[in-house]
Amino acid sequence: MATGGRRGAAAAPLLVAVAALLLGAAGHLYPGEVCPGMDIRNNLTRLHELENCSVIEGHLQILLMFKTRPEDFRDLSFPKLIMITDYLLLFRVYGLESLKDLFPNLTVIRGSRLFFNYALVIFEMVHLKELGLYNLMNITRGSVRIEKNNELCYLATIDWSRILDSVEDNYIVLNKDDNEECGDICPGTAKGKTNCPATVINGQFVERCWTHSHCQKVCPTICKSHGCTAEGLCCHSECLGNCSQPDDPTKCVACRNFYLDGRCVETCPPPYYHFQDWRCVNFSFCQDLHHKCKNSRRQGCHQYVIHNNKCIPECPSGYTMNSSNLLCTPCLGPCPKVCHLLEGEKTIDSVTSAQELRGCTVINGSLIINIRGGNNLAAELEANLGLIEEISGYLKIRRSYALVSLSFFRKLRLIRGETLEIGNYSFYALDNQNLRQLWDWSKHNLTITQGKLFFHYNPKLCLSEIHKMEEVSGTKGRQERNDIALKTNGDQASCENELLKFSYIRTSFDKI
């Protein structure tokens, strides 16, 4: 039985969820670079991206490699990797027998973001014989899940209580170790020597080791999670996991709180800001991140802002960003909400898709409305799209047979046209069989910064309504002859009103 693990408890099935942008060198404390989270699957090609990484700022997932063999891993080693800020997950990587050479110096898994409450997941690794993470000293947050690894031993010899604050939620089941077939031998045991430290858990006094050649490092209890030197002297209180010299914040392997210019500090002093819960960055760093993602459509890219001495992905609820200094300031009234469309555009074809934009005031991208039916549609669209004030790209209304009016965009005031449909149009209306009105132009103002209007096959939309939009939106004169079809717009509506004058002759039985 794995020490510190839980057996036999019912657990939810383990679901495996399925960018080499360097964020800056980590400095003297770390020998390499800070790398983003990685999802490495199918083959070993991307694994080489770990070569210079000291910190993975995010998670590391290595999974679904069915053609790899043990010899493929023999020359692979990433000794610079010290810390993973989120979680480490391995799933069905064939041929991998140990992690001792792959990650010989991995010391800390912070667990800032977890995989279903777990910071370390080893699942269905069919050839893994031992973990071998002999320098792993601290899992700051989260638990361990090690399950269905039929060859995995050296679990009962690990004292997880020396690595985690609590072992109650560890789930370590259905491994070879369960069948008591392992016969784990710690260093020196074969020669009758006791080389590794022994600890007591559940009444068992057991030597602690990761492999037959690597003991588990056990520091004096007084050192807590700070770690200790090879001689057993406690590291500085700002260290986490390990250090090369005692009581020196510049000799830590990793930091308990924050890293700044080669030393570990309790908090980031001005003019620095907390970033990702582990390091200090200056304003320029946060500003660069903001600008890199301002026009990016890459998933996970955030326009970072500053709030409460932190550089964070977005302002919290009730705050909006001051564009001059990136500071989050309290909103006066309802907060603006910028919604970034991942692929640059979004099609609204149902109430469900409209709900995804609920509360958005600025759309960074283009909207395509293609709704053919739905219950209580006008009210639903207004509830979900009615706060949109600005669209950076274009607005396209296409084959939306259920629409009679666009009044559900009740606050839309600006279409920038930074991206144009077919390279020309910022407003595009095609084949809307029941569209009769755009907006009530006596109450609604709309500016279209650039781009043209396109109207074709809107049989109940009168040309007068379209011409009014040209005047109000500032697009009059931009359109070419064929942009607004004269014969297919309003051709099934009563669009022309003329005053009919009647004269009559009164007659009676005795007068003409």
Rank of each mutant, 00 (worst) to 15 (best):
H28S: 04
H28K: 09
L29D: 00
Y30T: 06
E33Q: 10
E33D: 15
E33N: 08
C35E: 00
D39G: 02
D39E: 15
N42H: 09
N43V: 06
N43G: 11
E51H: 13
N52S: 06
C53Q: 00
C53T: 00
E57D: 15
F66G: 09
R69K: 03
P70L: 10
D72T: 10
D72S: 08
S77Y: 13
P79W: 14
I82A: 06
I84F: 00
T85R: 12
D86H: 15
L89N: 01
F91Y: 06
V93P: 00
V93F: 05
E97G: 10
S98C: 06
F103V: 03
L106Q: 00
T107G: 03
R110T: 05
G111Q: 00
L114S: 07
F115P: 02
F115Q: 05
F116M: 11
N117I: 07
L120P: 00
V121I: 07
V121G: 04
I122T: 03
I122V: 07
E124G: 02
L128T: 02
K129H: 12
K129C: 10
E130I: 08
E130V: 05
L131S: 04
G132M: 01
L133K: 01
M137V: 11
N138H: 11
S143N: 13
V144N: 02
V144L: 08
N149R: 01
N150F: 04
N150P: 13
Y154R: 14
L155S: 09
A156Y: 15
D159K: 07
W160V: 02
S161R: 09
I163W: 02
L164H: 07
D169H: 15
D169E: 14
I172H: 04
V173H: 15
D177F: 12
D178N: 13
E181T: 08
C182M: 15
I185T: 12
I185R: 05
G188T: 06
G192K: 15
T194A: 10
T194W: 13
N195Y: 06
C196L: 12
C196V: 13
P197G: 03
A198W: 10
I201Y: 09
T211H: 09
T211Q: 12
H212F: 12
H214G: 12
C215K: 07
Q216K: 03
P220N: 09
P220D: 14
S225E: 03
A230E: 12
E231L: 08
S237V: 05
E238C: 04
E238Q: 06
G241H: 05
P249V: 03
T250P: 01
T250C: 07
T250A: 10
A254D: 15
A254T: 02
C255Q: 01
F258N: 02
G262T: 11
G262S: 11
R263F: 13
C264G: 00
V265G: 03
P269E: 07
P271T: 12
Q276G: 05
C280K: 01
C280T: 01
C286M: 00
Q287H: 15
D288F: 05
H290T: 14
H290F: 14
H290W: 08
S296T: 14
S296H: 10
R297L: 06
R297G: 08
R297S: 07
Q299I: 07
H302R: 06
Y304M: 05
V305G: 07
I306Q: 08
I306P: 02
H307R: 06
H307D: 15
H307S: 11
N309S: 09
K310D: 13
C311V: 14
P316W: 02
T320N: 09
S323Y: 14
S324D: 15
S324W: 12
N325T: 05
T329E: 01
T329M: 10
L332N: 15
G333N: 04
C335A: 05
